[in-house]
């Protein structure tokens, strides 16, 4: 059992201080295991903490509380303090490739760094490996000499993916990899990612707000709201049998392009009320300001994430 868990997140909290003893509780107690070989999808709207979780896993932030383990090794620290081998094995692809690729460096420079730094190849084999890398994301050799502002959004993201897999990682976090790209190129990115996952035996944490996409890539899905996981289930269960009101609300808002898909969605739940400030969370359940089913107990006590059905967790009193 232990060997299967690639990543184990235990009660991780990340609070950001904004002075005067006030904190933004970006992560407020996250428990999650990611098993080797699976794709765990992470859904959530702005303020949910999904990016914070990704960044904390990568070591951009240090958790305020809680434990993060990678292959049973404690990695709850900033990236600088982690072993080089951990840095090699965990990679991230950011949302906006215009921001994640240095506009003043060529593709060759960008892709060479991980190869040389982690001694993946010797200097004389570098060129060959670079071409191989571009090949695996289906980009032509000529792109090596290009500067990223001159290539299209989809291709930039492919370069970012190439950079991520250059170090032969085991775990990849994809933070909204297609959200800033045009629809006409999204398919290529996703299909490439799935191909690579199979070819290189990768494990993915896939963050996106596009539920139709999530349906097609994730094995299990966790939905976050204001720093906590509200529901966790297999993809199928998530869509066919959503338990949490927030999940239902989200699912009913998905824009789909066919009537048959529309029929799969729960009836629209009117979203009323505003999202509370993460500095001043309500007592009891944090979804209370928008939940159409709220009752007294919801106001007084915060529900736990409980296994309501086998493998299907929900944080709701009902």
């Amino acid at each position: 059992m232990k060997d299967l868990d690639l990543i184990k997140i235990e009660n991780v909290k990340k609070y950001f201080s904004i002075g005067k003893n006030l904190f933004v509780k970006a992560l407020d107690g996250i428990d999650l295991e990611i098993k080797r070989g699976e794709t765990v999808g992470l859904v959530g709207e702005s303020g949910s903490g999904k990016s914070t979780l990704a960044y904390t896993l990568m070591g951009m932030y240090e958790p305020t509380e809680g434990k993060i383990s990678f292959k049973n090794e404690d990695i709850g620290s900033k990236a600088q303090k982690r072993d080089l081998s951990i840095k090699r094995e965990m990679q991230i692809v950011f949302q906006d490739p215009s921001g994640s690729l240095n506009p003043r460096r060529t593709v060759l420079n960008i892709l060479s760094r991980p190869l040389l730094l982690h001694k993946i190849v010797k200097k004389n084999e570098l060129k060959k490996k670079l071409i191989e890398l571009l090949d695996s994301v289906e980009l032509p050799q000529e792109y090596l000499y290009k500067f990223t502002p001159s290539i299209g959004g989809g291709e930039k993201q492919l370069v970012a993916i190439a950079r991520a897999i250059a170090t032969n990682p085991e775990f990849l976090i994809l933070d909204e990899p297609t959200s800033s790209l045009d629809v006409s190129v999204q398919g290529k990115i996703i299909n490439t990612l799935m191909k690579l996952k199979n070819k290189l035996n990768l494990t993915y944490l896939f963050i996106t707000h596009d539920m139709s996409l999530m349906r097609n890539v994730a094995d299990r899905i966790a939905i976050m709201y204001l720093g906590k996981i509200m529901e966790l289930a297999t993809t199928r269960e998530f869509f066919e049998n959503p338990l949490h009101p927030y999940t239902k609300m989200l699912l009913s808002s998905i824009p789909v392009i066919s009537a048959e898909e529309e029929n799969l969605l729960p009836k629209e739940i009117k979203s009323s009320g505003e999202i509370p400030s993460p500095v001043n969370l309500p007592e009891g359940c944090r979804f209370i300001t928008r939940c159409p089913y709220a009752v007294d107990i919801c106001k007084n006590s915060e529900p736990e994430l409980l296994e309501k059905e086998p493998g299907h967790f929900s944080r709701c009193h009902q």
Binding site: V183, Q186, G187, N191, M211, R215, N216, F239
Partner: peptide, 22 residues
Amino acid sequence: VGLLKSIPRLTGGEFSNGIPGR
């Protein structure tokens, strides 16, 4: 046609690589 084929569906199934080129 190409655009619609490349959109992932809630009903599952394959979706194409989109429209190659720029």
